[in-house]
């Protein structure tokens, strides 16, 4: 079953075309990797899919609901771990989760049950009464993953979930995610810069200049481009030139303007 469907989706920030008429779909239970250099349009696409941003043209459906027409239905079925932290660091870890559970309409019993479950999953249960501002970057990220999973979303969006984390933490985070996926039929939509992480994807789309350059299983991509690694495939498709954060800065300018 298609759980995400995107049709001719475009998004323009003033003159800059961040996403240029892309179409793809994600099957339920899949890990879908969205790979691309800086400014390729990854975050813009995620922001449209999670209803933070309206497309300039085209349609996006998440779990059969149109992201612009029924945003609240979409919102209740997705969990998101943003690229930048989005915790309230003046509250405790438990406060943050309780707040999240209530925003997602969980009952008190369910909240009390889920808090230890998700905190144990990311091994933060013994820190539940600590203020988030005392947490390290890796702990914050783990807490965000726990929060994103708390309301049992159908789809988990991960925007660079392991950015800036040490290899140990990265390995742990992947363990949690894969464990979650084994236990439930969770669909994962992720972006990453670490190509070795993208190997766990069932499908990977390589996006550049707002367009999808190729979309296939990691195995097929490697054999198609005759490369040993996804990194090789990635560099073959997107070139070796260093990119500016054009798309990212257009997005942040837009966020500031509104």
């Amino acid at each position: 079953m298609e759980i995400i469907k995107v049709e001719n989706l475009s998004r323009r920030f003033n003159k800059f075309l961040a996403v240029d008429s892309i179409s793809f779909s994600v099957q339920e239970g899949e890990i879908f990797g969205f790979l691309g250099p800086n400014g390729a349009g990854k975050t813009t696409t995620i922001n449209i899919l999670c209803t933070l941003l309206k497309p300039t043209s085209g349609n996006a459906y998440v779990s059969c609901c149109d992201t612009t027409k029924e945003p609240n239905k979409v919102r209740s079925q997705i969990g998101i771990v943003f690229q930048d932290p989005s915790l309230d660091d003046r509250l405790t870890a438990e406060d943050n989760l309780r707040f999240h559970g209530r925003l997602y309409h969980l009952g008190s019993e369910e909240i009390n049950k889920r808090i230890p479950e998700v905190l144990n999953l990311v091994e933060l249960y013994d820190r539940k009464n600590d203020f988030v501002r005392k947490f390290s970057g890796g702990m914050k990220r783990r807490l965000e993953i726990a929060r994103g999973l708390m309301h049992r979303p159908k789809i988990l969006f991960l925007d660079e979930p392991t950015l800036g984390l040490d290899p140990q933490t990265r390995a742990h985070i992947w363990d949690y995610i894969l464990k979650m996926r084994k236990e439930t039929n969770l669909t994962i939509f992720m972006t990453t810069h670490y190509m070795q992480e993208a190997d766990v994807c069932d499908k990977a789309a390589i996006i550049d200049h707002g367009k999808i350059a190729d979309l296939d299983t990691p195995l097929n991509l490697k054999s198609k481009y005759n490369e040993q690694t996804l990194e090789g495939v990635f560099l073959k498709i997107t070139g070796r030139e260093i990119r500016s954060q054009a798309g990212e800065s257009a997005w942040s300018q837009w966020m500031r303007r509104t």
């Binding site: 999670c50 209803t51 933070l52 609240n72 239905k73 919102r75 209740s76 997705i78 998101i80 943003f82 930048d84 932290p85 989005s86 915790l87 309230d88 660091d89 999240h100 925003l103 997602y104 309409h105 929060r147 966020m255």
Partner: peptide, 17 residues
């Protein structure tokens, strides 16, 4: 502050009016 520190996004993606 909430916008600068990202927390506003957590509120904006929640299924609330």
């Amino acid at each position: 502050w909430d916008r600068e520190f990202g927390f506003l996004k957590e509120v904006l993606v929640a299924p609330i009016s």
